[in-house]
């Protein structure tokens, strides 16, 4: 039950950060708008923007809970329950955002594989929540974390997609699926992208859990 309560309250918390929410949600739109004339570039930039937006919102939520988490643990909550609740909420927010922008692209662009564009955005949103969570676990201050996520997104955007550096970045999966969605070609692109997304998701979730298990560990004392 803790997971669902944490998920609901995390979503509520995000919805109340009106200014940050508005700025973060509209950022992918500006990415899209500046190269709207080029379907491929605008859609890829939009997708990366979705990844940055969701990961940054997750970072904010993780950092805002630092004071509460140890007390929740003492009261009886499990680390897995707390982290799962937060990831559930932020994944939900990400999926909604991806769905909204996919609808916009469907109306505004003529892509060879529109469904794959949807997969590209969903993958970006799904991976972004644990990425933001992991960065939040490693970097305790919002500014540090936001800059780290900005660096990751920038490197992902600028690096050669076929090179090793791009593949080591968390949002390479979305780029790979995007190649199929925008340029066509082999369906293997989608499968490779999904596999990369799966591995990235797993690494980030396990990394987040490991760090929080260590940080929120309680000393077990014998009863008197």
């Amino acid at each position: 039950m803790t997971t669902l309560v944490v998920a609901r309250l995390s979503a509520l918390e995000v919805s109340r950060r009106r200014a940050a929410l508005l700025l973060v949600i509209t950022l992918p739109f500006w990415f899209y708008l500046v190269r709207r004339d080029l379907s491929g570039q605008s859609t890829r930039a939009l997708t990366l923007g979705i990844g940055w937006a969701v990961s940054t919102l997750t970072l904010f939520v993780v950092n805002a809970s630092r004071g509460v988490d140890p007390r929740l643990r003492l009261t009886g909550a499990s680390v897995t329950g707390i982290i799962a609740g937060r990831l559930l909420a932020m994944t939900g927010v990400g999926l909604l955002l991806a769905l909204g922008y996919w609808t916009m692209v469907a109306v505004d662009q003529n892509l060879p594989h529109l469904w794959a564009a949807g997969v590209m955005m969903l993958v970006s949103a799904l991976v972004a929540a644990p990425v933001g969570s992991l960065i939040g676990a490693i970097l305790p201050r919002e500014l540090d974390g936001a800059l780290a996520l900005l660096s990751i997104s920038s490197v992902q955007m600028l690096a050669d997609p076929t090179g090793l550096i791009a593949k080591l970045m968390p949002f390479w999966s979305a780029r790979e699926v995007g190649n199929y969605a925008v340029d066509g070609g082999s369906i293997d692109l989608v499968w490779r992208g999904l596999a990369h997304a799966g591995v990235t998701w797993l690494i980030c979730v396990l990394g987040t859990l490991a760090i929080f298990h260590w940080r929120l560990r309680l000393v077990r004392y014998p009863e008197p």
Binding site: V5, L9, T75, A77
Partner: peptide
């Protein structure tokens, strides 16, 4: 909401 959150933990 705090009561709900901490209550669920307990």
């Amino acid at each position: 909401e705090h009561f709900t959150l901490f209550g669920s933990a307990a």
